[in-house]
Write a protein that binds this DNA or RNA. Sequence first.
DNA 1: CATAAGACTAGTCAGATGAATAGTATAAGG
DNA 2: CCTTATACTATTCATCTGACTAGTCTTATG
Lengths: 207, 207
Amino acid sequence: MKSLTQRQQEVLRFIERSLSQAGVSPSLREIAGHFGFRSMKAAADHVSALKRKGALSGPSRRARSLTPNHPLQALRKQIVNIPLLGAIPAGLPDDRSQEVEGCVSVDISSIGIRPTSRTFALRVQGDSMIGRHILNGDIVVLEHGMSPRAGDVVAALIDNESTLKTYLIQRGKPFLRAENPRYPDLIPAQELVIQGVMKALIRKLHA
Amino acid sequence: MKSLTQRQQEVLRFIERSLSQAGVSPSLREIAGHFGFRSMKAAADHVSALKRKGALSGPSRRARSLTPNHPLQALRKQIVNIPLLGAIPAGLPDDRSQEVEGCVSVDISSIGIRPTSRTFALRVQGDSMIGRHILNGDIVVLEHGMSPRAGDVVAALIDNESTLKTYLIQRGKPFLRAENPRYPDLIPAQELVIQGVMKALIRKLHA
DNA sequence: CATAAGACTAGTCAGATGAATAGTATAAGG
DNA sequence: CCTTATACTATTCATCTGACTAGTCTTATG
């Protein structure tokens, strides 16, 4: 990408801002209006210069079709929105919209999964999984409806609270184990509801 | 959001698909053309019904301004692209485009930071930071140019390789320490280049 | 000095676009 | 039976929009 002039950068920033605020790219007249141009040709010149330099792209003769070419955008894959659930009631009903506490948006390549509608996220409470390097406050991405394999980290409903545990099989029977010596539990997993299998983790430092 | 009819869902899906493929929302005539409507009014009716039911939004009398109202989209914040660098040469030059190995896209709320142009990501190699629950293969988001505080995890350039270490201060002097008993290093941080301070972590399970 | 590129003004034009009116047909619900 | 919602056809209209020609002024650059 060739270097942009000061004015061209301003125009590009205005297009980006309009795109993220209004959701639509501005028309040439709106660009001209924002910068006080008396003629749209000025805006059209800037847009064509930005396209020529590779900073903008979009088809010709199409209204509001400008899309900035971020250098990183070419590398990025599709973005997915994963609901961050507060409390999960038993069974993970289809109508999850009421329990959604937030939203985790990641691109599938960084998280390494292609999420289905059964993918959800939980905020980890407590340090019962510290042995698997999962800390209090981490966000865990899970997938519902998968059958866990031995050693997988799963979310299970215990005492009406969803807890993270390691899924194990001993003597042919499934068990759940906390990964913290202070929680020496070994719970038979037979009657428990496995709500999801862990797929990824996001940790933000509150530094 | 009220329930959508079969046809309305089809129209909504078409709009979403056009939006993600072409980057612009379709015009009423394009919608009519795709479904074989002889009149745009059919498309206009569907669009107004979708807007009335809350599935679509956008200003009136504006070309290609349709934006779907995903229930999760309301919760999601702005998405940022963070370059995933392979090797960092000394000094972290401004022209990072050559070293970009990939791209991590996250929304700022899940990662808890508002990234600057000096934010970058690294893939962790080795388990020298296992004591801080940072594993081999994790992706670490760092910020360049910050002055680290004692206890922060930093990326430093040692032997022409960037390594994660804990930043410590002992007797008034800065030191770097690996968080693994097998790496009992305590390196004076005076002559070292601190490339960035850790802000967040993303772990994907290769399950 | 000549030239090129950038940054504009002024105005025109064809085509794209959203909105509107008028009307038809079908199905569901009271 | 009447009303309402859905799903369309056909057509018109004002306006929006991108592209265009023609020209000015400034600032670099060789």
